[in-house]
């Protein structure tokens, strides 16, 4: 199936969902093909474990297969799939010993009484290109995201990584638009600070050579 025209793709997907609701199982395979990468990717970003993500993907596909006909269409089909994926991923995480989460407030920017920035801010935005595909950089970025508290992490992954709209994220997580925006902003501030420690140091090292 081609994915060149978003309106056409949406219409095809809507038809597949209708078929699934009507118990037409041929549409299951096509929907599974459409969604398995999204399910796997979201689950992997939450669990950071290939086996868990495979299990989650299978569980979600099984729910689509067995319960697809009960989908009522009150919200978008994709929102339903994302919600099931999140629940299945959290079940996996619950059974695992987890790193203690970090307080996000400790890493938010600090200001003086007049509201001006207190820290020295380095601009490392230009020096990241060559490092992007470096394994160490990938690891630093993944670890920083893993350290985010769950509430902020899920918003960040859905909105900034998966590229869903603020409205859609609000719909999936049953949050208001201001709540989505506030969590996303806190997540970005936290990650910026974490990456600043890494890229800022790299830039200083490079400049002192």
């Amino acid at each position: 199936m081609g994915f060149s025209d978003p309106t056409k793709d949406k219409a095809i997907e809507e038809q597949l969902v209708k078929d699934l609701q009507a118990g037409e199982m041929r549409s299951f395979e096509q929907l599974a093909n459409l969604y398995q990468k999204k399910i796997y990717s979201l689950s992997f970003n939450l669990t950071r474990n290939a086996t868990d993500s495979q299990d989650v993907t299978q569980e979600v596909l099984l729910i689509l297969f067995r319960k697809g006909h009960t989908f009522q269409g009150k919200s978008a089909f994709s929102s339903w799939v994302y919600r099931i994926t999140l629940n299945a991923s959290y079940m996996k995480l619950r059974s695992r010993k987890r790193e203690p989460s970090v307080s996000i407030d400790d890493l938010l920017p600090s200001f003086n009484k007049a509201g001006f920035q207190q820290e020295k801010i380095q601009d490392w935005s230009e020096s990241t290109e060559s490092l992007l595909f470096d394994n160490e950089t990938r690891e630093v970025i993944q670890k920083a995201v893993d350290l985010l508290p769950d509430k902020e992490k899920v918003v960040f992954i859905l909105r900034d990584v998966e590229g869903l709209s603020t409205e859609k994220v609000g719909n999936i997580l049953e949050l208001t638009i201001p709540a989505v925006k506030s969590r996303l902003h806190r997540a970005r501030l936290f990650l910026r600070k974490k990456l600043a420690n890494y890229f800022g140091e790299y830039k200083t090292r490079k400049e002192s050579k």
Binding site: P109, Q117, D123, W124, S125, L132, I141, Q142, D160, L191
Partner: peptide, 16 residues
Amino acid sequence: FVNTYKSTTRLCKDTL
């Protein structure tokens, strides 16, 4: 701050 805030989003997206 703005430049690095924007880069953070882009880098995380490209990596993840």
